[in-house]
């Protein structure tokens, strides 16, 4: 018989899986998208990103929500433990940088849709190319992924626990 704690742990870990799975898809699309400048080609990649767009929200909210719940439920931990505070900080960095980096790709998606709607889906677009190769967005994604990796390390090693 599973305890309430077991279910909370599963939901917390499943949320983390959803978050990292979405990041993997985003990275594959971001790297593949760098070689693309035609709206129709980029729209295919944005279509692949749709489930990831749902998972990134569920994963980001779920890890925090179930993580706090776990910390309250487990007698061995407190929400103000050092490694849990570190996790909050890393979560905030990951969410902030990820959201900022994602804005550029959301903008690229809108540009691609607009151009495709105007019947220019197969014409190379310098505007789209600039957005898909945006270095700032790439570095924000690097920062977000590094924060998620640090978060995973923090969760497993639990320094100070």
């Amino acid at each position: 018989m599973l305890s309430f704690y077991d279910w909370l742990l599963f939901l917390h870990v499943a949320s983390a899986f959803a978050l990292v799975a979405a990041l993997v898809v985003y990275w594959a699309i971001a790297l593949a998208g760098r070689a693309v400048d035609r709206p129709r080609d980029s729209l295919r990649y944005f279509r692949i990103a749709r489930p990831a767009n749902v998972l990134i929200i569920g994963g980001t909210v779920g890890t925090l929500l179930f993580g706090i719940w776990l910390a309250i439920d487990a007698e061995e931990y407190e929400v103000w433990d050092g490694w849990i505070i570190a996790a909050f900080v890393l979560w905030a960095i990951a969410a902030f940088t990820g959201q900022r980096g994602g804005k550029t790709y959301a903008q690229a998606s809108k540009v691609a849709e607009r151009l495709d709607g105007e019947g220019r889906g197969d014409e190379p677009s310098p505007e789209l190319r600039t957005l898909l190769k945006d270095r700032n967005a790439m570095w924000l994604n690097v920062a977000s992924s590094a924060a998620v990796l640090a978060l995973l390390v923090d969760m497993i090693y639990k320094p100070g626990a």
Binding site: F17, A21, A22, L23, V24, V25, P51, A52, L152
Partner: peptide, 13 residues
């Protein structure tokens, strides 16, 4: 865990 997470992401993509 990291390997499993990357695997799930790649399969989903």
């Amino acid at each position: 865990v990291l390997g499993a997470m990357l695997l799930v992401g790649a399969l989903m993509g």
